[in-house]
């Protein structure tokens, strides 16, 4: 998944979610909210359980990498260059003679950090702009939508390369600096998608009676947006955010593959894959293990997003 804007197609019609709470038939006498209803539905889904197990494992791997490997991921020994997997090193050694298993364990942190912060920032920017545009309508909505169109019109990979190569010239050394730049670039280019989803949800929510009622009672715009509209517009954006989390990890790998994403000292899975590209013909395990972990993680988030969408969408029940 190298283009996060494509993930939007996974989220169908935003309007379908908005009225969900009204149409959900309470099975017990007590009526439940959309979210608790979705949670009850979600717990029973096998895809949800599988993806949560994978994600939990990856998070543990990212936080406590030394639980899984005692080898130092940066220790180089050319004597064991590109050795195949063995009992000593389950995933083998790379071109520099580094332990690949240690690399994968310590790289999880960087991949997940980029995924988490980029999807969070995208949803924050896009959601805020979208809900304001959708609620206000008129000229403000027009201007915000056109600004979104401007960023949406930029081809993603090209835009990212242009911005990142500029920062590369500026010369960043610290690992967190590299992560922040990559996160900023990804969110700057993907927020229009989150904006469009939020905006269409907000436009549908605005027509609902509870918003009119709140306005009739004298609530100001800020209160209507935060207390009444946001809780009802969050569902489609949350689904998008979940899928985006996985997509972003793939995007980071793509950028690192092109040589402009992360780099040492922030050695993510993408960097490991990029380093393997010249030797992959003779030593496929250099590509196999980091790519396997990458695909598994992305898969888990896409599956989770699918499960959450199905649970939140009353039309599919």
């Amino acid at each position: 998944m190298s283009d996060p804007t494509a993930a939007s197609t996974a989220v169908d019609s935003a309007g379908a979610y908005v009225t969900a709470a009204e149409h959900a038939e309470p099975t017990t006498g007590k009526s439940r909210s959309l979210w608790s209803d979705a949670w009850r539905n979600l717990r029973k889904r096998p895809t949800f359980i599988i993806s949560m197990v994978i994600i939990t494992f990856m998070i543990i791997l990212a936080v406590f990498p030394s639980m899984f490997t005692s080898a130092d991921p940066t220790h180089q020994d050319l004597q064991r260059q590109m050795l195949k997997p063995s009992a000593d090193a389950w995933f083998g050694y790379d071109f520099q003679g580094r332990d690949i298993m240690a690399g994968v364990a310590h790289g999880a942190k960087w991949s997940l950090l980029v995924g988490f912060f980029a999807s969070l920032l995208t949803v924050l920017i896009g959601g805020t702009v979208g809900v304001i545009g959708g609620y206000a309508g008129g000229w403000l909505d027009g201007i915000l939508s056109r600004i979104g169109d401007v960023f949406f019109g930029l081809p993603f990979v090209l835009g990212a390369i242009v911005i990142l190569s500029a920062f590369r010239a500026a010369g960043l050394k610290s690992a967190f600096g590299l992560v922040i730049v990559v996160v900023l670039v990804i969110s700057a280019l993907t927020w229009p998608v989150a904006m469009r989803i939020m905006r269409s949800a907000a436009i549908s929510a605005k027509q609902q009676d509870y918003v009119k009622a709140a306005r009739a009672l004298g609530a100001n715009s800020f209160r209507i947006i935060t207390k009444h509209m946001l809780p009802n517009c969050m569902a489609p954006v949350m689904v998008y955010a979940t899928i985006l989390f996985g997509a972003t990890i793939g995007v980071e790998a793509t950028l690192s593959f092109l040589g402009i994403g992360l780099r040492a000292p922030a050695i993510s899975w993408g960097v490991m894959i990029a380093e393997s590209r010249d030797y992959v013909q003779h030593a496929p395990h250099l590509l196999l293990f980091p790519a396997g972990f990458l695909v598994l993680t992305v898969l888990a988030f896409v599956m989770l997003g699918d499960a959450v969408r199905d649970a939140l969408d009353p039309k599919l029940r």
Binding site: M1, L287, L299
Partner: peptide, 18 residues
């Protein structure tokens, strides 16, 4: 399709090329 969605394009490209 779930599997294809999770594969970054360059991994698909590499794998098929090899």
């Amino acid at each position: 399709t779930l599997f294809l969605i999770s594969l970054p394009v360059f991994v698909t490209g590499f794998a098929l090329q090899i």
